[in-house]
């Protein structure tokens, strides 16, 4: 029993957790940006999938990870722009738009995989150039240190920096303040002279940029291939982590780490023949509980405030 536990819980779990949480982290950051402007972006999954495909295709044909990354970001931005246009200009329900984009992305990448790369299922080739890894030669001597800190894909530390950058942007800058006011009370924001439509559009585009990066990381950093539906719900996990953190980048990052942690433990339990499902459930149940408790407290506070006035 204890042998089994030490197979599950050991220092390599740190690395596994970070690795598993990074795709979700990028998805979360994609949602957080729009959520702060009161747009629930459920299309992350689709944006990521298209980004992942573009990254692999461009990397394969051009042999440059930088071009691949730029292309993925461009595609992500274009999709986000279409979503923004549909939602803001043509008053489509953002939820429907997001779900349609997810469906479109799944079908389109499957179609293009067949037509452009000539296979179905998944595409792997030695010619695919992955995102660079950060290698520190001085850590090579120690097995534990190497596992903990070395050879991270460029986007793994970058994601963490992005969390703090976004947190600063949202809570410490004028831009962030205005964006949040657009989300909290668009009428008041409009009255205060903030162009609500433009702000929402702008932030959708940024979210497309991050979503494209998420896709590129998934296919060129996390793995080195493209597979049909390779996002496999990670976009939705990102949405869940965003709810977990209530739209705050740092708290949502913690949510992502919990997702990554339970995911890593789950896959280890499964390899030992133990049921992983209850562990895998934890982040979802935790998020629902947090949402419910937070709202319950808020309602109770409102009731108290009302009775005090009367």
């Amino acid at each position: 029993m204890f042998d089994d536990l030490s197979l599950v819980f050991n220092y390599t779990l740190f690395r596994a957790t970070l690795r598993a949480s990074t795709p979700i982290l990028y998805a979360t950051l994609t949602c957080i940006l729009t959520q702060q402007a009161d747009i629930l972006n459920v299309g992350v999954e689709g944006i990521m999938l298209c980004g992942a495909f573009t990254a692999v295709a461009v990397s394969y044909f051009s042999g440059s990870w930088l071009l691949a990354l730029l292309a993925a970001v461009a595609v992500g931005t274009v999709i986000a722009a279409v979503m923004a246009l549909a939602h803001l200009r043509y008053k489509a329900d953002i939820f429907v738009v997001g779900m349609a984009v997810n469906m479109l992305a799944l079908a389109l990448t499957r179609f293009l995989l067949q037509k452009v790369l000539g296979t179905s299922g998944s595409f792997y080739d030695r010619a695919i150039v992955p995102l660079p890894r950060i290698h520190l030669a001085l850590l090579d001597g120690n097995e534990v240190l190497r596992s903990l800190f070395n050879d991270y894909s460029l986007f793994e530390p970058l994601g963490i920096l992005l969390v703090f950058f976004l947190s600063w942007l949202l809570y410490r800058t004028v831009w962030g303040l205005r964006l949040r006011s657009v989300g909290l009370n668009p009428l008041a924001a409009e009255t205060a002279g903030i162009p609500v439509f433009r702000r929402k559009f702008e932030v959708m585009l940024y979210s497309g940029v991050v979503g494209g990066m998420a896709g590129a990381y998934l296919s060129l950093g996390y793995s080195r291939l493209f597979a049909e539906n390779m996002t496999n719900g990670r976009g939705f996990m990102g949405v869940a982590a965003m709810f977990f953190g209530g739209g705050d980048p740092i708290r949502s990052w913690i949510g992502c780490l919990i997702f990554g942690f339970t995911d890593s433990i789950g896959s280890r339990l499964q390899s030992l023949g133990l049921p992983p499902q209850f562990i895998l459930m934890i982040p979802y149940v935790a998020t629902i509980s947090i949402l419910a408790l937070a709202m319950g407290r808020k309602m109770a506070a409102q009731r108290r405030a009302r009775s005090a006035l009367k």
Partner: peptide
């Protein structure tokens, strides 16, 4: 949760889907 505590049902139901699918996956697996 929506009726009594005004918890956003879209969030809760998206999350609850995963919980439900994991429950069935456990039941069918064990």
């Amino acid at each position: 949760l929506k009726a009594y505590w005004r918890v956003n049902e879209v969030c809760v139901t998206i999350l609850a889907n995963y919980v439900a699918i994991y429950i069935t996956s456990y039941l069918v697996g064990y």
